[in-house]
Design a protein around this nucleic acid. Structure first.
Length: 162
DNA sequence: AGAATTTGACCCCC
DNA sequence: GGGGGTCAAATTCT
């Protein structure tokens, strides 16, 4: 299991499928307390066949459980939404009702963001408390910059010299 | 024991 | 029927 960029929330993997578009399987994540807070926020993590070191995380829905449960300190996604307020549809593929007004999709590509960041010991699962990566900041950057269009403009591709 | 993760099966849409 | 996505059950870890 790879270490998907933590945006300040806890995600619980609910599925993994191998898609034809990529040579790598796509992982599906949901909010850990979705059943408690009704957080419809979802996250898809897929490795790019072009850059196996790059993880493309696609966010779907909105976080309704933000700044409540987890002791996270994320001033980025914790504040106002994507610059809109009618983003309450929490739909991305259109199951209940279509919401083509605002596609709540956010594709950010993370390279070896974890390389030499906070990996000091050997455990990569227990370190999800306070010692989080700058991914949240980069997410904030794109959230503040590209709300509905120039998301790809704020893409974060480190390219570790590959 | 509880929670999270993994894998498979099932369902929905094209 | 194929592809994609989600849920459920089992297993493993904390």
């Amino acid at each position: 299991m790879e270490i998907p960029p933590d945006d300040g929330y806890t995600w619980r993997k609910y599925g993994q499928k191998d898609i034809l578009d990529s040579r790598f399987p796509r992982s599906y994540y949901r909010c850990t307390h979705k059943n408690y807070y009704g957080c419809e926020a979802k996250k898809q993590v897929q490795r790019l066949d072009d850059d196996p070191c790059t993880l493309e995380v696609t966010y779907c829905g909105s976080h309704t459980c933000k700044t409540s449960p987890t002791p996270i300190r994320i001033p980025s996604l914790a504040r106002s939404p994507i610059g809109k307020d009618e983003n309450d549809d929490t739909n991305c593929h259109g199951h209940p009702q279509a919401a083509p007004t605002t596609t709540p999709f956010t594709s950010i590509q993370l390279g070896n963001w974890f390389e030499g960041s906070s990996r000091q010991e050997g455990q990569t699962q227990s370190g999800r408390d306070v010692d989080y990566c700058p991914v949240a900041e980069l997410a904030d950057a794109m959230f503040s910059s590209g709300s509905s269009g120039s998301i790809m403009d704020a893409m974060y591709l480190p390219r570790p010299g590959n």
